[in-house]
Amino acid sequence: MKIITLPKENFAEFVGHLCSFGEIHAPIKRGDRSFVFAPVKDASEIELDCVRTILPLKKYFFRPMEVMFNFCAGEGYEIPSEVTDKRIVVFGAHPCDIHGLNILDMVFNGRYVDTYYLARKSKAAIIGLDCIPDDLCFCRSTRTDFVDTGFDLFLSDIGDKYLVRVGTSLGDDMVRAAESLFYEVQKEDRDAYKRKSIERRESFKTEIQLQDLPGIMDLEYESQVWQDVGETCLSCGTCSMVCPTCYCYSVFDELDLDGSSGRRKRRWDCCLFKDYALVAGGHNFRAKRSSRVKNRYFHKQRGFVSLYGRPSCVGCGRCKAQCPSGIDIVDVITKLRSETRV
């Protein structure tokens, strides 16, 4: 892997160069203390210290709501051209965000290929940026605090410079387009990088043990914990919307008044919704909230491990940060574990 450095005084100019690779999207402030990925014109708008945005990066590739195709009787159907046209450069993706996208890649580019997701993803450049965890981050526990693939460039703050890892040939093109801004790695850069890595590792305040969790979840299938969480959960859908790896969607048709045309759409779905497991005839496989909550945890921490060899949780802390009723995934898992120990 090619590794170079970018002095911080060159950062703004580098961001200026990125425009030629697509519209730049980076974290900006929204509200009193929230952040969102949104288009930026120049480096000064970027909130480099943002810990987490409200929505993760999936919003760019797997839209909250999208038209899959327009249809008209007699004429057939047509996929909106917007799906494949636009190039974007996402700047400021944290390791957990990139892991989230890597997990979505596994799902959407697996047995059933999702062309909508892939068309948008293939037009996007991802530039990662290191972060300092807050007390909701538990990505060290999910092993997503560091990332090796899934980015074109990855910047790590090493003081007055960024250490830049080049992940793809597109990333290399970005560097070459602004070659004079970059420098070779020196000994002091290596030392600074290692020192910063240790500092970062030591700044994690939250940790949970996940290795043997699938087995414990099976053992604790009837645990009171699920009933308790079911009583607190509002079924409001927030945790799924903000989750980097929740990928369920619901497909429906909207008809026009002419009686012959319309559009097929899809929107983000959530397994906590009452209708999620409702089937024809009115039977609901998960009619109780506690069973829906349990299903969500099982899918993330148990089912996904069986299918893909790792949990789909990336430890970003969004579900805890955004839950109106304060449900804390770390707390839920800790309770399940302690029940097992007793």
Binding site: G31, D32, S34, V36, K59, G237, V242, R267, D275, P324
Partner: peptide
């Protein structure tokens, strides 16, 4: 829709 306003609020990325 048979889900809560929160769902649409988060889809649109408004601060809670």
């Amino acid at each position: 829709p048979n889900y809560a306003v929160c769902t649409e609020c988060k889809m649109a990325e408004y601060p809670c």
